[in-house]
Write a protein that binds this DNA or RNA. Structure first.
Lengths: 325, 325
DNA sequence: CTGAAAGCGCTAACAC
DNA sequence: GTGTTAGCGCTTTCAG
């Protein structure tokens, strides 16, 4: 591969001069520029970003750590993150932690070693200390790691409220909430709070079961949903904490011969695009995925550029009312 | 951030020595190693991969170019590519072309400039020449770009046959195939060939419509499917070239009051995991997504390491027969 | 066995 | 205005 030296020799100037036209520094005659650009063209020259980054101490790479890119919520987040990053001249290094402590730690080290300019973190299995010690711009999705780390999230509390109110308004008398893991300190936990506060306020019979949200746990979801209806055959409303889980609920209702929405009403969470395609009738709480991504990228880049950024960034959700309620 | 020099000073040896223990070259006393590792620990030292890559002329980064990571087929490909790459010590730079010529070209240049060791390409909007001139290890998914570029793909022809035969066996008399764009030279075109050969062999009435497979073209899909049933109300079988499109067909059948599978039988293509979740009854042709990913990564790394790799890599598909047929 | 020195490709002081 | 030189952090000849 051609280097700046090759270009310089071909044009008959020093590498400094070539570097100057490359970076457009100082005065350069039009003729010179033309000759340099032409030589670059002829040699199919590409400046070596490794060398540039090494010198500048800036790689223009953002590390993205998420549990699993094949999960539709994260793949939708990812496309938008990539889009905004691209527009701002940043590249994305994709890391799936698969909720594996070792892999996440590995990736964190790798990202530091690779001199990424910042990290967007949508996964966390390690202790808070480990993230604080990262010592580089870091923005989380849905995670409150420490006082100093900004996060962006939906208004989960409002989402929980909206979903629950909808079920109540539609006449549900006994409602189940299938929540994410409440022990993890995810902001998504507020969906649960919104649910609980609402059912209590209206004195509605309710039941809560937990599961993991960020994976494709088909068997686990199936088991939980089956048991739920076994224990509570009189359920007439379900607020599932993801559209994927709502899918499982719908399936189980069908198996049990319960009609939706007549016998059981179901509302999901996320509002993922693939859900709209495959389950066009599902009522759900839509997260502003594009805005979340845009905000995360903006915060991170601002921070990289030395601007102060707000710590708390909560974006509004939207109730999408369709046929399952 | 600490450098190798800081470590050397702290231990009281030269940078060469530290570099040696870092790379485990030559003889090193246990005691020395211990002291060096300890200093690294204390300084929270991470070797600068930029500098290493620059010297070694090897970045251990693979560029992944796909149309859209939010498309479930590609996000599933991506998780497996990332997994295998990680196991082999490679990182993934994620590029979504969004089927935009300029963006794809940009990314191609960026990847070269970033000194990636190789590229996995699941998108192509440029001329073949552009890819040949890349001049670095490159493996495509489902694309036959030139004699010299290896590709990995499913046995689309077989898939087309299997889907069509199933519909015929189940008694369909007039079958539609919603195919991908047949003008692009994608190997997926063979699904169409398998379809055509099979219907002709059995002298079955048939109709073909084209659309784009690699995006979330909700409106386009909707329009095509609506028109299809309008023009051909007597259709009793549909072979859709993706599960996403099959979803649209199912929806339209419901809207028209056609029962599936009694009135119309539907079979999709891809066998994506999110489809299993959200459309558990859909019959489909399952592509071996994990194997495709694994093969692509293996081929690429073999090539990077200078091993000769086979050009044609066709993997078997599997018929998943469920309730929609 | 260990260290000084050169160099990977690039940029930026600092001279001329 | 242009070139010489040093240096980003690392690895590796090559002496000692």
């Amino acid at each position: 591969m051609a280097t700046i030296k090759d270009v310089a020799e071909r044009v008959g100037v020093s590498v400094t001069t070539v570097s100057r036209v490359l970076n457009n520094r100082g005065y350069l005659s039009e003729d010179l520029k033309r000759r340099v650009y032409q030589a670059m063209e002829e040699l199919n020259y590409q400046p070596n970003e490794l060398a540039r980054s090494l010198f500048r101490k800036k790689s223009n790479i953002i590390g993205l750590i998420i549990p699993d890119i094949s999960h539709p919520f994260f793949s939708e987040i990812a496309i938008h993150i990539e889009t905004f990053a691209y527009k701002s001249g940043y590249k994305i290094l994709l890391c799936n932690s698969q909720l594996d402590k070792k892999k996440e730690k590995d990736y964190l080290n790798m990202l530091k070693a690779s001199q990424v300019d910042g990290i967007i973190m949508g996964s966390h299995t390690l202790d808070t200390e480990e993230y604080k010690s990262i010592n580089m711009p870091l923005v989380t999705l849905d995670r409150q790691l420490s006082e100093s780390i900004p996060y962006v999230s939906s208004d989960h509390y409002k989402g929980g409220q909206l979903a629950t109110k909808l079920l109540i308004r539609k006449g549900c008398k006994k409602i189940a909430h299938i929540s994410g893991n409440l022990k993890l300190h995810l902001l998504a936990k507020a969906r649960y709070d919104g649910f609980i506060d609402t059912v209590k306020k209206h004195s509605i019979n309710h039941v809560v079961v937990q599961t993991d949200l960020n994976g494709f746990k088909y068997d686990e979801y199936k088991k939980i949903v089956t048991e739920l209806f076994l224990k509570h055959p009189d359920l007439d409303g379900v607020f599932a904490s993801s559209d994927l889980i709502a899918a499982q609920v719908l399936k189980e209702c069908k198996r049990l011969g319960k009609r939706v929405p007549e016998d059981v009403k179901v509302v999901g969470f996320d509002g993922i695009r693939v859900g709209e395609f495959m389950m066009p009738g599902l009522s759900t709480i839509q997260q502003p995925i594009k805005d979340i991504a845009k905000t995360a990228v903006k915060l991170l880049i601002d921070w990289i550029n030395g601007t102060e950024v707000p710590r708390e960034n909560i974006l509004p959700v939207k109730l999408i009312e369709k046929e399952t309620t």
